[in-house]
Each structure stands twice: as C-alpha cells, then as structure tokens.
Amino acid sequence: MSANTVTKKNPLKSSAGLSDTNLLLIITISVFVLMYACAMLFLGSGFLKAQTFFNILNENAALVVLSCGMSIVMITGGIDISVGAVTALVCMCCAVNLDYQGGSILTAVLIALCIGLAFGLVQGFLIAYLEIQPFIVTLAGMFFAKGMTTIVNATQFNVQNESFQALKSTRITVPGMGAVNKLGAYVPAYVEIGVIVAVLVVIILFAVLRWTKFGRGVYAVGGNNQSANMLGINVKRTKFFSYVLCGLLAGIGGFVYFLHVGSGSPSHASGAEMNAIASSIIGGTMLTGGVGNIAGTFFGVLSLSTIKNIVSSLGLDEAWWTNITVAVMICLFLVVQSIVLARKNKNNAK
C-alpha cells in the first residue's frame, strides 16, 4: 500500500512542475527579453527604435523558416545539414530562371518548392527506409547541392526581372510603430514579405506539432523509437515525412532568402545550416530528440541575431568576435540543457 502511494506521487509531482519543453522555452524567452532590454538600456538609440527589431526579422526571415524545419527533424532525433546548401541552390536556380529563361515569379516559386521537395523526398527515403545515418545522407545532400549550384552558374549576379524587383521591394508597414527621423518626417516601420511567410510558417508548424497526429508522432518517435512503434505509430513514415517537411521548408526558406538578397551566388547562405542548428538548440530543442518547440526556435533565431547585432554595435567589429560570442552562447545553452537532462534522469531514477 505504501509503495503504491509513493509511485503515485511521482507522476503527480512531475506533471505539476514544468515539463522540459516548457522550462527550456521559458529560459530561451527570458534570455532574449533580458538581452534586448539590456541592449535598450545600455546601447540606447538603435535598439530603442522599433525598426531595428523589424530589421532583425527582415534579415533572418529565411533563417526562421530553415530553423523550423531543422527543429522538426531534430525532435525526431535526426539532423539535416543540407538546408544551407539547398538554399543556395534554390537562389541560383530561381535567379537563372528569372533572368535567363524568361520565367515568372510563379515558375520561380514552383522551382524553389520542387527543389526543396526533391531533396526532402530522397533524403527522407534514404534515412527512414534504408536506415542510413542522417548525418551522412544530408552531408552528401549538402555536397550535392553545393556542387550543383556552381554547375548551374558559377558566378554571382543580381536579378533584373522587373516583377521580381517589385515584389522584393514591397514593404508592409506596421501601424503605430514608426519613428520620426532627423528631418522631422514620420517614417513608418515596415517588414518584408519574407517575414509574413516566416511568421505564417511558425504559426502553422506550431499548430501541426501541437494538435495533429503527425505532430504528436514526431515527439513520440524522438522520445523513444521502440515505444512509439509499440503504440502503433509508423516510425519510418513519421521520420520520412519529417525530412520531406524539412526539405520543403528549405525550399521555402530558399525563396525567402532569395527575396531578401535578390541575387544568385554559390556563396549564399553558407553556414546557414549551422546557424539553424544553433537557433534550434538555443530555442530549447534537444538533440537527443523528443523535446523541442517551434515557438522556442523562433526566439532562438531572435536571440542569435540580437547577440550578433549587440556585438557589432559594441564596436567589436573584428569579424571574429561575432563567431566567438555565438559559440560561447551555444556552449552555455548546451550546458544548461545537459543539466536539465541530468536532473530529469535523476528524477526518473527516484
């Protein structure tokens, strides 16, 4: 009888407390808010303007989309390091299509989606059904996309297509957030189209992961492969679709990136995969799988780019400082995660 009460107590206790996902999410959001508040207090002018915040969004819309895909794959316990190279390939193909083949925006979007989907399908099949290591498969995918980009076109060029230029410079004003500039004129705050896409992606994926069968399956597969299988979840199919989704998001992210930079180049988005992984980690996605949150990923991207902005506005403009601070930040978050995990294991052992 007494043993029964003890075993009953533990689950009650853990459900009353914070789950890992929520705890990591709260840590991420509070770090971001704290960092931004400090920047506002100590660095002043730039960070006080709403437009600075929207510029961070404008610049990192593509990274948000890529990181969302990365988070989903990471929640299943895998990884996809091809997303940066796929982004570059999408940019190059869209640029060539628009300028040299007389394509329209519609064909460019279709190309972007198809490339992303193709990478997702092939990589997903190899990983889920042939059971090859995700790292190796997506490494090959990255190499392939990198090589193909230079085969399609080896040099950088800016897109001249008029309708694309019109779309690229479309600005959506955010009401009530503008500022008065030095000349006394009111300048409204704006975001680019890519930001709208990114926010939509975040909302949709948040809902998918929280309320759909597929979304819950992703967490189950990442948490424990075997028990997910026993619960009747098709592990292979869930993994397959998570990679397909990640590939598709890489395509979308690629187009968003293209919309922001307006050019094709083999060196575009180099290292984006590592930034996406870092954002996901900072956002509380655990690499062991099963733990993570799309909202956290969104804040992860914001934290990462805010710290970059802070470093550059501190006047430490030697390129190495940015990288070193980002690395230190990843390191801190990893250690926090590992402590959380250790605490959880201890609780389970009890």
Binding site: I281, L287, T288, E318, W320, I324, I330, V335
Partner: peptide, 27 residues
C-alpha cells in the same frame, strides 16, 4: 569534456569550436 562529462551529442558539442575555431585562429 563537453561530450564525456556533460553528455552532449558529439556533433553538437563540437559545433561550438566549428563556429569559433577559425575566429580564434585569426585572433
């Protein structure tokens, strides 16, 4: 230390130096 004592996945633990390494070298 990151891998063995903090039990972080190797690929991610080494991501730290992957990001910072070349900058440290320049420094």
């Amino acid at each position: 230390v990151m891998v063995a004592f903090f039990k972080i996945q190797p690929m991610v633990a080494t991501l730290i130096l992957f990001t910072a390494g070349r900058s440290i070298a320049a420094w």
